[in-house]
C-alpha cells in the first residue's frame, strides 16, 4: 500500500510537470503580452524591464525552466514551482498567486464538495430505487428524467433556477457569496447532471448484483429486505459509482467554471478564465497546478476506497 501511494505521488509530479509545461508554453506562445495589455501603451523598455523582473525574458523553454524551478532565475537562485513558489499575479502585481488562490479555493472547494455529496447520495438513492422497482413507472420516470438531466447543460438550468427561485419567488439570493444560502442553487445546478449519471450507473450495476448468488443466500438466511439491500447489494453495487468519482471530480472542476460565472461566485474559475484572457501565465499555471493536484488526489482516494469496499481488488 505505501509503495502504491508513493508511486501515485510520483505520477502526480510527472502529470503536473507535463500539464504546467504545456500550459506555460502555450500561453507564452499566444499572441499578446501580459505587460502590454493595458489601454495605455507601455514603452518597449518598460516591458523589457518587467519581463526581466518576472523572469519572462529570454527563450520560452528557459522561462518555463525558471518557472518550474529547475534553472537559476535572474537573481541567481532556484525559485519556482518545485520549491513551492507560485510567483506573483501579473495583473495585480502586489498580490501573489498563492494569496489569490487561497482566497478563491475555499469557495470552489465548498461548492465542489457539496455538489459531490449531493450527486453521490441522491444519485445512488434514485438509482437503487429504480433498480429495486425495475420496470415500474417509477423506474421509467427516473431513467427518462435522468437522460434529460444529463442532456440539459448547467448553464441552462442555472439561469432558469435563478429566474424561478431568486427573481420570481425571491427565496434565495441571485448570486455572489453571502453565506450558505448562496450555495444552495449553485450546488444543485452543478450536481444535477451527475445525479442523473450516477443514478443510471447505480441502476445498471444494482440490477446485475441483485441476480447474484450471494444475494439469494442472504435472502435464504432470512435477512430482512432492507438489510439485504443496504448491507449486501449496495456495497457491491456502488463500485462503479466509486470508480466514476475520479472523472466526476474532473467534471465538477471544469463544471464549476460555468457555475461560478452564472452565479458570480468568487471562486477559482473566474481567476482561471481571466488569467487566460490577460495572458497571466503565473496565475494560469497556478490554477492548473491546483486543478491537477485535486484531480490526481481524488483518483488516489478513489482507488483506496475501491480497495476498502471490495477486498478482492489488489492495488498494483
Amino acid at each position: 500500500m505505501p509503495t502504491f501511494i508513493l508511486r501515485r505521488i510520483l505520477a502526480l509530479v510527472f502529470v503536473l510537470l507535463v500539464a504546467v509545461t504545456a500550459t506555460f508554453c502555450l500561453l507564452r506562445l499566444a499572441p499578446g503580452n501580459p505587460f502590454a495589455l493595458n489601454e495605455k501603451q507601455s514603452s518597449p523598455e518598460i516591458i523589457a524591464a518587467q519581463e526581466r523582473k518576472f523572469d519572462l525574458d529570454r527563450s520560452i523553454p528557459s522561462q518555463c525552466a525558471r518557472y518550474l524551478g529547475v534553472m537559476r532565475n535572474n537573481e541567481g537562485h532556484f525559485s519556482g514551482l518545485l520549491q513551492g513558489n507560485l510567483k506573483s499575479c501579473l495583473k495585480f502585481k502586489d498580490r501573489t498567486v498563492m494569496e489569490l488562490i487561497s482566497q478563491a479555493l475555499p469557495v470552489s472547494a465548498i461548492l465542489g464538495v457539496s455538489a459531490l455529496l449531493l450527486a453521490t447520495t441522491i444519485g445512488v438513492w434514485l438509482g437503487s430505487i429504480a433498480a429495486v422497482r425495475k420496470n415500474t413507472w417509477l423506474d421509467s420516470a427516473t431513467m427518462l428524467g435522468a437522460l434529460v438531466a444529463i442532456s440539459v447543460p448547467t448553464f441552462v438550468t442555472g439561469p432558469a433556477l435563478v429566474l424561478v427561485f431568486s427573481l420570481w419567488l425571491g427565496w434565495l439570493p441571485v448570486g455572489g457569496w453571502t453565506g450558505i444560502s448562496s450555495l444552495i442553487l449553485p450546488a444543485i445546478t452543478l450536481a444535477g447532471p451527475f445525479i442523473a449519471y450516477i443514478a443510471r450507473l447505480t441502476r445498471t450495476s444494482m440490477l446485475e448484483v441483485l441476480n447474484q448468488d450471494f444475494v439469494r443466500t442472504a435472502h435464504a438466511k432470512g435477512l430482512s429486505e432492507k438489510r439485504v439491500l443496504y448491507k449486501h447489494v449496495l456495497k457491491v453495487g456502488i463500485l462503479p459509482v466509486v470508480s466514476f468519482l475520479g472523472p466526476l471530480a474532473a467534471n465538477l472542476l471544469t463544471g464549476s467554471l460555468i457555475i461560478e460565472s452564472v452565479f458570480s461566485l468568487p471562486g477559482m474559475g473566474g481567476f482561471f478564465v481571466n488569467s487566460v484572457l490577460n495572458r497571466d501565465v503565473f496565475l494560469c499555471c497556478g490554477s492548473v497546478t491546483i486543478y491537477c493536484t485535486l484531480l490526481v488526489g481524488m483518483n488516489l482516494f478513489v482507488d483506496i476506497a475501491y480497495k476498502w469496499l471490495d477486498p478482492r481488488i489488489r492495488l498494483e
Binding site: 510527472f14 500539464a19 500561453l27 499566444a30 482561471f272 487566460v276 492548473v288 486543478y291
Partner: peptide, 18 residues
C-alpha cells in the same frame, strides 16, 4: 490514463487562445 488525469478542457482553453 495520463490524459484522463489532466483537466483537458482547461488546457484546451489555453490552446484555443494560442
Amino acid at each position: 490514463e495520463m490524459l484522463h488525469s489532466v483537466p483537458r478542457l482547461i488546457i484546451v482553453i489555453v490552446a484555443i487562445f494560442t
